[in-house]
Nucleic acid binder design. Structure first.
Lengths: 226, 226
DNA sequence: CCTACCTGCGACACACCTGCGACATACGCG
DNA sequence: CGCGTATGTCGCAGGTGTGTCGCAGGTAGG
């Protein structure tokens, strides 16, 4: 199961470092540079963890924490400069679940994220196997195996496949995939999903014209064979 | 499962656009042009999502949100001309689940509605079993099984069958089905339901000419065998 | 700077859906 | 029994959903 981490941080450099580290750990990353943006995206995407910088332009991170906590149970981790330690207490009281001070050690932050994820997720599904017939996904290495042989897939293809296999045979609408994989921006687009499915089939199906794994459900969307 | 969306909006033009779009998406639509009306109808009909304009004559939309939230868990989406982030935060803290600013992209609004529906419907895992004799509906995969064998049905056929089986043997009038499945738009049409029942029978009945599952109640409508 | 790949887009093709209309049949009622 | 209405039956044609594939701009890596 691919987890999504939301980063609300106005410093481009720090956001970049966070993104790199998080992606290395196999997370999907959403970004926002303001509290307003963050609020919307969290509502929209329901990430599994939110990282919040306290020093944000405009609305303060502390208010963002309160707003988030008002409508969501999502784990919130405050990421802040050490001088803000007074704010940290306020942040935790506002509803944050943990905090990390800058400059932080990436490994430590990753560990705290895992802790939050472990706490908020059902143990049964926490380390679910992404396997469907001859197809096997390894989130660690972002690799797709087919009958044990590695199949080269792009980043987006990997996430779509992960989402589909994670759904365990349930139908996923194009819209669901657009939101979960492409994310917040591309809401209005056309046939991107169809195209990607087509390309995925060419890579994982024996006979792409008669798919046996990645099935179409006309009028609803796509699903993996159970 | 047919979902109902409530629109509280005083501008006739915007309400019309919303209605059209929502019906295109397969929702049943309820309308109100004032907060008072909206409150009554929500309590009466218990829609699955409520869209609220903030600028309403008389009682302000924000107060409507609070009133709704006081007595209901229904997802609320604010639709507002206000781009001021302050109102947005106030709205979300008042209990709204999301917001869209005018002029909005219809597709985006529809997507957000789906997001809310998805969230609010996930906890209620206790979906009743959609089974009737040898027929079995799986909403997860949008599949209809007959004696364990999958039967290909179209989107509308699936919804009609779901509505009928969900009614557990009660008679459903053509008008009821039209409203629930097709939506208010096609209310004046002719024999669409009869046609669809005919086609459904050809797919699920052993002898479509002598139906044993999908029964006609002359003068009233159709019902499933108990 | 070059190259290979990714990715969104649009165009076309094809199968399927679906509303419609016309006719046939069944039912209820006098 | 005969009539009117409700429903069953079925083919047609336009619309819609999806598959397919080539193109071009973008991007990452060498």
């Amino acid at each position: 199961m691919i987890r999504t981490v939301m980063v609300v941080e106005d410093d481009d450099a720090i956001r970049m470092v966070l993104r790199t580290n998080l992606e290395d750990e196999g997370y999907r990353v959403l970004e926002a540079s303001t509290a307003e943006q963050g609020l919307v995206i969290v509502q929209d995407e329901q990430p599994d963890v939110v990282l919040v910088d306290l020093r944000l332009p405009g609305i303060h991170g502390l208010d963002l924490v309160r707003s988030l906590r008002a409508t969501s149970q999502v784990p919130i981790i405050i990421v802040t400069a050490q001088t803000d330690s007074h704010d940290v207490v306020a942040g935790l009281e506002a509803g944050a679940d943990d905090y990390v001070t800058k400059p932080f050690v990436a490994k430590e932050l990753m560990a705290r994220i895992r802790t939050q994820l472990r706490r908020s997720s059902q143990p049964e599904e926490s380390e679910e196997e992404l396997v469907c017939g001859p197809i096997e996904l390894h989130p660690d290495t972002a690799e797709v195996m087919r009958n044990g042989e590695p199949v080269p897939v792009s980043r987006i293809e990997f996430f779509v496949l992960a989402e589909l296999i994670g759904a365990k045979g349930r139908v996923l609408s194009r819209d669901h995939l657009l939101r979960k994989v492409w994310g917040y921006g591309n809401a209005g687009d056309g046939r991107v999903v169809d195209n990607l499915i087509y390309r995925l089939r060419n890579k994982i199906e024996d006979d792409p014209a008669n798919p046996e794994l990645l099935l179409t459900v006309r009028g609803f969307g796509y699903r993996m064979k159970a």
